[in-house]
Design a protein around this nucleic acid. Sequence first.
DNA 1: GTACCGATGTTCT
DNA 2: GAACATCGGTACC
Length: 196
Amino acid sequence: MKNLNQSFYETDGITLAQNLLGKIIVRKYEDKIIKCIITETEAYCGPEDKGCHAFDNKKTKRTFPMFLNGGKSYIYLIYGMYYCFNVVANKEDIPHAVLIRSVEPIEGLEIIKKNRNIKSKKIEDLTNGPGKLCIALNIDKNLNTYDLTLGEELYIEENSFNFEVVKSKRINIDYAEEYKDKLWRFYIKNNKFVSK
DNA sequence: GTACCGATGTTCT
DNA sequence: GAACATCGGTACC
């Protein structure tokens, strides 16, 4: 399967969020390999989006990766304990990004179980949330600003199958005023791997 | 099933 | 000092 190239990422966040659904995240480290289908995403669109870290072009130590060109990663710590993994969209200096909220494991399930180490027997509890999937895939701030087009430690592969896309409001951005009602969260209909 | 709560630390005011 | 793109446990239906 083909690694997605630079031009795939150089579009606006809303388009990229939908295009990333159904694609395959590949994570390689220490001779291990994990593959997951992307099942849920959210778009954060730069200067005008009050829900976005880079609202009003706010460029800080935390948010600067969003200003890189598309195809990089933006990873940050949230609530002091969990990481969130975003795919940077659009061209350089246009701070759009797509938060990966949920994925479905298709390879390396035993590694994921070991990384997560939870009581729940339900497979979907392993990766149905932005913080959960970062633990499952061993993603942390060391991979911040990482270039996903390299096809090495972390990248995204082409994939195609038929599914229906559901659009809904984004999660936990009550502070975003009129932007909190934007239907910028996308997930694969009838898929169990979606956050609550 | 839903509801609440504490954990935890970096960033920005 | 407050806010935060979250999660897992416990308590209760």
